[in-house]
Design a protein around this nucleic acid. Structure first.
Lengths: 233, 233
DNA sequence: ACCTGAACACCGTTCAAGT
DNA sequence: ACCTGAACACCGTTCAAGT
């Protein structure tokens, strides 16, 4: 082992929690969350896996850390938004915040899954919800209705929703169509719907459905319902 | 190694995919999904881990299998429901199906997480959605609106929703109250809301919120919104 | 056809040791 | 204070071998 630096080797930056978390996000963004292992992360940093434990208590702590960092990124994005929120304009204010959060999550596809599996309550998440809450208070909501509303929105408030099935499932439209055709006897209504919807929507080049459109449809459905309750309660 | 059965040892049942999946569900129900390993499952069956690979192709295939089994259990439960679904009664029909699905999931707490992580499209899930679709067709929905509706419902159609944060987070109410108090400066609206809501609801002995009530609130909000669209479209 | 033992390539993590 | 090598206890899985 040579103590002196190899000729041409850069003097490595010292590690820090900040650098570890940044590198972890980089790995997850580039290669997916399943490829984020302590050894792989250490390699990315030019260090040994064991060195990471000086900055994170465990892998769970690492995941808590990168989840927090993503929500902090969301909080940064939404704090730049400055639109009126009094009375009826609460809705566009909330809508804009949620869609901003979604934009951040689209840059970190692994984030929803990691967020869902956190057990620790994250201060960053609480701060985000506190911001939404303020807007709804401006809109004239009671605390009680806001409480229901936050539960009704669930993860949608942070910009993502659970799609239980993707008809295309990663396969091509042709493969999907063929597979569905074979099952038509068992799932006649579903096949009927997908035939019609796929035909009607020439812009669905990414597959059967446009996720962004569907996300906004669901979001607006909930926000509109809440708006009605706000005024009738 | 003795070839003859030990005195008192029961002649072990032969393995089968059915038995493997059943045992896997039993382990997950009793000890949580994280304790479901191939070795632990084999032990439960009185066999070796390697023997399981004769019935499942991989652990992913095992998870696909138990997810399918749970949805099959849901399909059994909802197929016993026989209520009218024509016109405006579509809503109560769908509502009842969703709440039945939820009851099944409450017996398998690990199921939502496993369902979310499946990549393969499950026939059982398609059958479930096809059933919902039929009810909405009876209600007079267009295929196009049903398509939006299924996306808007997302996992809620199958009886569960993503709660992004649990204010209690497993801790006692006293601990939660103390922790929130310390953060009151940073999240004033959230603290204000939780103080009021917890105070107002003497029945919330399980913590700050009654999940079943909140689930139904969110579900009804969406169903009511869809019902309006059904009649105005 | 059905089941298994030994072994492999990975994990996260502990611990004592280096600078 | 910061980093590491060797080692441990666990994974899922391959493969050749047993009945």
């Amino acid at each position: 082992m040579v103590t002196r630096a190899e000729p041409g080797s850069q003097p490595r930056l010292p590690l820090s929690r900040e650098r570890v978390l940044r590198a972890a996000i980089k790995v997850a963004d580039a290669s997916g969350i399943e490829s984020l292992t302590m050894r792989r992360l250490a390699e990315e940093l030019g260090a040994e896996a064991m060195s990471l434990y000086y900055y994170v208590a465990s892998k769970e702590d690492l995941l808590d850390g990168i989840a927090d960092a993503v929500v902090a990124e969301i909080n940064d994005a939404v704090s730049a938004i400055d639109v009126p929120s009094a009375g009826p304009s609460w809705k566009t204010a909330v809508r804009q915040r949620v869609l901003s959060a979604r934009e951040v999550l689209l840059r970190h596809r692994w984030a929803p899954r990691v967020l869902e599996t956190r057990t620790r309550t994250s201060l960053a998440v609480l701060l985000y919800y506190d911001g939404l809450l303020r807007l709804m208070r401006d809109g004239g909501f009671s605390y009680d209705l806001i409480h229901h509303a936050l539960h009704a929105l669930g993860s949608r408030a942070l910009g993502f929703s659970q799609e239980m099935f993707d008809p295309s499932g990663g396969a091509s439209d042709e493969q999907t169509a063929a597979a569905l055709d074979g099952m038509a006897g068992q799932i006649p209504h579903l096949v009927g719907m997908l035939m019609e919807v796929a035909h009607d929507d020439p812009s669905s080049t990414l597959g059967w459905c446009d996720d962004q459109t569907e996300f906004e449809f669901g979001l607006d459905l909930i926000l509109d319902g809440l708006d009605t309750m706000r005024t009738t309660a």
